[in-house]
Design a binder for these strands. Structure first.
Length: 347
DNA sequence: AACCCGTGGGG
DNA sequence: TCCCCAAGGGT
């Protein structure tokens, strides 16, 4: 049987019922595809419900403040997705009369949409035979065809893209694309794939040669940078604190945080107080205590953040203060959200 | 081309 | 201070 037919037959019997599969509205499909980039279905589900409820049309999303969108995205990670989503929503609303572009070529022009997402939307919503290439597709194809070209090399990307495109069912490209992804996610899994009950077991190269565990091949590991964060949590007499937006290029752009002093190791109270940055922030007398006795290690994909939260009691209130009662309105990294939960519980 | 961007689950 | 990976994209 043809590869795509076997796949679609499997899919018709085993597919998951997911909310975005009940619609072909490109706006909803777009939302789901952005949320699911590098993100598991279980983690993205509630965010999809929240966004489609609060922003039922692209105009609702376009009219929201960026900070509101980021607040709704809080906890999902990769926040540039939310910023780009919002940027493109405004573009669709204002320049395209709210009409989502209908071809791969036009869709991929939108910020935040690359080859995968453009292929997914074009095939699912507009029946255009453009094959998706995601982690699942790499795994299924590398195993079935026994291809050991690294999937994160430029040669690998080209090779797999060509192969994927040659396999697509042009009469039902959207179903085919979702079938190969679901098959990868549920059956041809990274660990412990279900080879014993696999519809492809009679022709899968990796199964025949016992190479399942070796495929797909991925080149080079990422290196992790260690950083040492000291957040200064200010408590004033009138229940205010300082929270400021992270600007610039690095992590958590557009999210808010307490004043931050970064050091090159875990430091103690004396070292903190004597630092130039601290003196600049608090020239007057303060009372300081460390909230978390053992530093919190917050792990990002490329950084490990060794974090201490310092409670700083002071009488003077700077210009940029906010009220503690309004702190939950601000989008914050999960590291800070977790601190706030523990801190408020203790009060 | 290589590097950066979050968070959470599972072995 | 493990390891991998997840419906990737931007620079």
């Amino acid at each position: 049987m043809i590869f795509s037919n076997t796949l679609i037959y499997w899919y018709l019997q085993n597919n998951r019922e997911l909310p975005w599969r009940k619609t072909k509205n490109p706006y909803f499909i777009w939302l789901s595809e952005i949320m699911l980039q590098q993100t598991r279905v279980a983690q993205g589900l509630s965010y999809y419900q929240k966004f489609t409820t609060d922003f039922p049309t692209v105009f609702n999303l376009a009219n929201a403040d960026e900070s509101t969108v980021l607040k709704m995205w809080q906890g999902l990670g990769y926040y540039s997705r939310a910023r780009n989503l919002h940027f493109s929503a405004k573009q669709i609303a204002n320049e395209l009369n709210g009409e989502f572009p209908s071809t791969y070529k036009e869709i991929i022009k939108l910020k935040g949409i690359g080859d995968y997402t453009a292929s997914a939307i074009a095939s699912i919503c507009f029946n255009e035979p453009t094959a998706v290439l995601d982690g699942n597709v790499y795994r299924v194809l590398s195993r079935y065809y026994g291809i050991d070209t690294p999937i994160n090399s430029s040669a690998g990307i080209k090779e797999f893209k060509t192969l994927a495109q040659s396999l697509i069912d042009e009469t039902q490209p959207g179903t085919y694309n979702q079938a190969i992804m679901d098959f990868g996610a549920l059956h041809c899994k990274p660990q412990n794939p279900l080879c014993e009950t696999c519809p492809f077991s009679d022709s899968c190269v990796a199964f025949e040669k016992k190479l399942t565990k070796e495929l797909p091949v991925k080149e080079k590991k990422i290196k992790v940078r260690k950083r040492y964060f000291n957040f200064l949590v200010i408590k004033t007499d009138n229940d205010t604190t300082i929270l400021s937006e992270r600007k610039g290029k690095g992590i958590w752009q557009g999210l808010y945080q307490f004043p931050l002093i970064e050091s090159n190791k875990v430091i103690n109270k004396d070292e903190l107080i004597l630092s130039e940055e601290f003196i600049n922030l608090f020239p007057l007398e303060t009372t300081i205590s460390l909230f978390n006795p053992k530093e919190i290690v917050h792990k990002l994909s490329h950084q490990h953040l060794y974090t201490q939260f310092w409670i700083v009691e002071t009488a003077n209130s700077a210009e940029t203060t906010i009220k503690w009662s309004e702190i939950e309105k601000y989008p914050v990294p999960i590291l800070i959200a977790n601190f706030l939960e523990a801190f408020q519980a203790e009060k």
